[in-house]
Design a protein around this nucleic acid. Structure first.
Lengths: 364, 364
DNA sequence: AAAATTTAGCAACAGCGTTGCGTAATAGAG
DNA sequence: CTCTATTACGCAACGCTGTTGCTAAATTTT
């Protein structure tokens, strides 16, 4: 991993992203808010605000009278100033969302995908769906790109699908490249779970610490947010959390090992014992906490959302039991606030992040 | 986690750190090497090299004749220009090392610690050991600080030992503060495993991708290097890898759960079955790979080093079996090249990192 | 000896946040 | 009403970064 040089443009993007982060988190903000949140000098904040205003990303919306002194100008993000489209590619469905600069899902639509669909069929479905969305909304000139979240394995850096689980026509498909050509828009390709955790990080803002998204949807996966960024691993293959062994003498899994979290969970489901299934997931989550020490755990996925309260209760209880010995070990457990849109919305936010988020210093 | 502002001093520190990284990795380097490795312009590299030379951190050491054209000046890091002391605090021993700017261990000494030692006893042992080292080596004015790697739980950001496993006198001890006062040097406090993985990252340089250090030494812990930095987790408590469940129906562990990696491993050891113990660790390592997708796994720790080849073989085999399905999933498994010095040396490197490593943008 | 090639630095420049200071807008005191 | 204290905020100059344009030096090749 060769690091890239940092020049003054990095500073510009970085501090600009800090201010945008404040704007997304707090609906309205003034200069002093930003000064406190970022540590920038008031003068620097003025300059950044001037730049962002000129680009139409934020706007003045009134004044606040603090009692004595000149009233402070109140700013707000302009949600309609930029949009991105997010796609969640699952085995049989394509979910498309339109997300604005504030992170709000403005449109959401699901369409079926042909069984064992080909790359061309996906491209056609994407193009048709995007046309439908841009036709019904006025996003002219403000669409920044398309984010695609899908099952792996894939190579995020090169936009390459190495081979999607359960799909035959997806071996070493350069999806990003052909999608950009087909759609005429910048495309970002990532694993579904990584897109999902990005959405959570966006919604929570700068206060979002290390976190994981547990996704239960025809398999169990994990998306990670560590040190202020998505963690993808050395080969964009992080998150195969369902294939960690929790029962050395357990049943054989499709991956060849015995007692994977996923197969143990599945057996409980097939036995009709949702409570036990939820407790199995809880064991896996506590394993994650022991290993990574997370501040947040977010639960998501279609199968999980069939019994959200059962899973939430089991995981919460296990996490609290684990931390009971000490007062300082606090971890929040929540359901994803975006529901079924989580992955698609996160994929869209990854596009917006490319322009208005913290610039990367270490590419690849 | 409030991010801090980035100003031009960040650029200076960042690009300087890139050049220092090249200097540590390649023993000798010239301007064109740095240009290629960092992406900086030749002129920028000249400026950075001028600054570093003025500080005595690097020096010209000759010329290379590339065939045609003006010969290139060859530079090298000046190892003796800066030193740091590293301390590895275990339950019954204190290991102190002197590390130079190149990352070489120049002195190493182990002294016993009293059973159930107190903070004051540790401070005295530290002071005595440091005096012995500085007495026998000429490090006057070039000692940058003391790094302490010890068992947790602790609070890295505030330099606070919350309570060390198995030690009674260590509850909420502000070790960094009192050690800085007692020793008159800057002190960095971190978990042993985090210090250990930092040492590996230093030795491997910029090419070191996501990695873990597995430490087996009266317990099983893990140190993580993710996204170009040490991963400590939300409460500096990451790495309790030994307390992840791998056998749902396994024996009860001291932590209250059943079938933790650590207790299953310990049972195998007690049964005299080292091979089985090693395979248990291998299962844990593969679990990590599935979750985090690592490029390197480094094995370390006193107990592991009693049977290094057995562990290395078992883990290597399990990792290769896991990756056999695909060609692109490559993970290197190695023993720590620093042996028993790994933790102490890493703690020292954390001090050097503070001055000459990549500056942090997101403190706390 | 002249040309080609490679290395390296000087000087001017653009862009960033910072500092110093002046100005605008308000509330409250006299 | 007038004056003062207070708060908000921007202009201008500055220091620092890496970048660009160009010149000079050192060596091999022709």
């Amino acid at each position: 991993m060769t690091r890239i040089t940092a020049d003054v443009r990095f500073l510009r993007g970085y501090n600009q992203a800090l201010v945008m982060g404040v704007g997304r988190t707090a609906r309205r903000f003034e200069r002093s808010t930003v000064v406190q949140a970022t540590g920038l000098t008031p003068q620097a904040v003025s300059k950044v605000i001037a730049r962002l205003s000129a680009d139409g990303l934020i706007r003045a919306t009134g004044v606040r009278r603090p009692g004595v002194g000149k009233p402070a100008v109140v700013y707000e993000l302009v949600p309609d100033s930029r949009y991105a489209i997010g796609a969640h590619v699952a085995r049989r469905t394509l979910r498309l969302v339109l997300v604005d600069l504030a992170g709000t899902v403005r449109h959401s639509a699901v369409s079926p995908l042909p069984g064992d669909f080909t790359p061309q069929q996906l491209l056609d479905a994407l193009a048709a769906g995007i046309t439908a969305i841009t036709g019904s909304s006025d996003v002219s000139g403000r669409l920044t790109g398309v984010g695609i979240g899908m099952i792996g394995p894939l190579d995020h850096a090169h936009g390459l699908v190495r081979g999607a689980h359960g799909l035959r026509h997806w071996h070493d498909v350069p999806l990003r490249e052909i999608a950009e050509k087909h759609l005429g828009l910048p495309v970002h390709l990532d694993k579904d779970v990584t897109a999902g955790i990005t959405a959570e990080a966006w919604r929570h803002g700068a206060t979002f610490g290390d976190a994981a998204l547990i996704m239960i949807e025809s398999g169990i996966g994990g998306g990670f947010w560590l040190g202020g960024a998505a963690h993808r691993g050395a080969h964009t293959n992080a998150g195969e959390f369902g294939h960690t062994v929790v029962d050395l003498n357990g049943p054989r899994c499709v991956c060849g090992r015995h007692g994977c979290l996923e197969i143990v969970h599945q057996h409980a489901i097939e036995a009709g014992d949702i409570d036990r299934a939820a407790r199995v997931v809880a064991v896996g989550v506590v394993n994650l906490l022991q290993t990574l020490d997370l501040a947040h755990v977010v639960l998501a996925g279609a199968d999980l959302l069939r019994h959200p309260d059962t899973y939430l209760a089991a995981v919460t209880e296990a996490v609290q039991a684990d931390a009971r010995r000490v007062h300082w070990l606090t971890t929040k457990v929540t359901l994803s606030g975006l529901g079924a849109d989580a992955i698609a919305a996160g994929a869209a936010m990854q596009i917006l992040d490319r322009h208005y988020g913290i610039p990367e210093l270490a590419p690849t």
